[in-house]
Computed example of a mutant assay.
Amino acid sequence: MSPQTLFLVTMSASLLNGMVSPATGLVFGLWPLWYPQVVTPVQELIYYGASLIVATATLLSAAIPAAIAERLGAGPVATMGFWAGGAALLLLLGVA
């Protein structure tokens, strides 16, 4: 697979994890801490924001093994494979 395809797999797994992870409920419950006070609190916008926060955290957390692999000399395809695998692992942990 090309690195671009693996990146799309990584992004898809991260976005899906943002929707189904139990951490989304936790971030949703903490909405007064991160939701801007200027905007009227609407439940759909709060859920959307919580989902994006969890998806971004998944993407960043999955990048840690990829960064270590790249530092150890892995090529671009192997690095993206580690990143996609980390995102898939976090997705499986969120679903389970």
Rank of each mutant, 00 (worst) to 15 (best):
residue 27 V to G: 09
residue 22 P to D: 10
residue 85 G to A: 15
residue 66 A to R: 02
residue 66 A to P: 01
residue 40 T to R: 10
residue 81 G to V: 10
residue 50 A to I: 08
residue 92 L to T: 06
residue 23 A to R: 09
residue 93 L to M: 07
residue 87 A to P: 02
residue 46 I to V: 15
residue 19 M to R: 09
residue 22 P to L: 15
residue 66 A to I: 00
residue 71 R to C: 03
residue 21 S to L: 10
residue 13 A to N: 08
residue 45 L to Y: 11
residue 24 T to Y: 01
residue 28 F to Q: 15
residue 47 Y to Q: 14
residue 66 A to W: 05
residue 28 F to G: 09
residue 13 A to S: 11
residue 79 T to I: 07
residue 29 G to S: 14
residue 36 P to G: 10
residue 25 G to D: 13
residue 14 S to G: 09
residue 10 T to S: 05
residue 52 L to N: 05
residue 28 F to P: 01
residue 89 L to C: 10
residue 30 L to H: 05
residue 16 L to P: 01
residue 59 L to A: 10
residue 81 G to P: 03
residue 86 G to T: 12
residue 52 L to P: 01
residue 88 A to K: 01
residue 32 P to K: 07
residue 46 I to F: 03
residue 70 E to N: 10
residue 33 L to K: 08
residue 8 L to W: 07
residue 18 G to H: 00
residue 63 A to C: 05
residue 76 P to Y: 04
residue 61 S to H: 03
residue 19 M to Y: 06
residue 17 N to Q: 11
residue 25 G to Q: 14
residue 82 F to K: 07
residue 15 L to C: 04
residue 18 G to D: 04
residue 78 A to I: 14
residue 81 G to M: 15
residue 41 P to A: 14
residue 87 A to S: 13
residue 16 L to M: 05
residue 32 P to N: 12
residue 48 Y to A: 14
residue 19 M to D: 02
residue 9 V to F: 05
residue 91 L to R: 06
residue 54 V to G: 05
residue 15 L to V: 09
residue 11 M to S: 11
residue 54 V to H: 00
residue 21 S to Q: 02
residue 93 L to Q: 02
residue 83 W to T: 12
residue 36 P to E: 15
residue 14 S to M: 01
residue 96 A to M: 06
residue 17 N to H: 13
residue 37 Q to G: 13
residue 63 A to R: 04
residue 94 G to K: 09
residue 27 V to L: 08
residue 71 R to F: 15
residue 94 G to D: 07
residue 19 M to H: 02
residue 84 A to E: 12
residue 78 A to K: 08
residue 59 L to D: 01
residue 61 S to G: 04
residue 20 V to G: 04
residue 52 L to W: 02
residue 40 T to G: 07
residue 85 G to I: 06
residue 52 L to E: 00
residue 79 T to R: 15
residue 82 F to M: 15
residue 21 S to N: 12
residue 37 Q to L: 14
residue 34 W to P: 11
residue 45 L to T: 13
residue 37 Q to S: 15
residue 64 I to C: 07
residue 86 G to H: 06
residue 23 A to V: 06
residue 54 V to M: 07
residue 13 A to R: 00
residue 49 G to D: 03
residue 21 S to H: 04
residue 39 V to Q: 12
residue 57 A to V: 12
residue 93 L to H: 01
residue 37 Q to I: 08
residue 76 P to D: 15
residue 12 S to T: 14
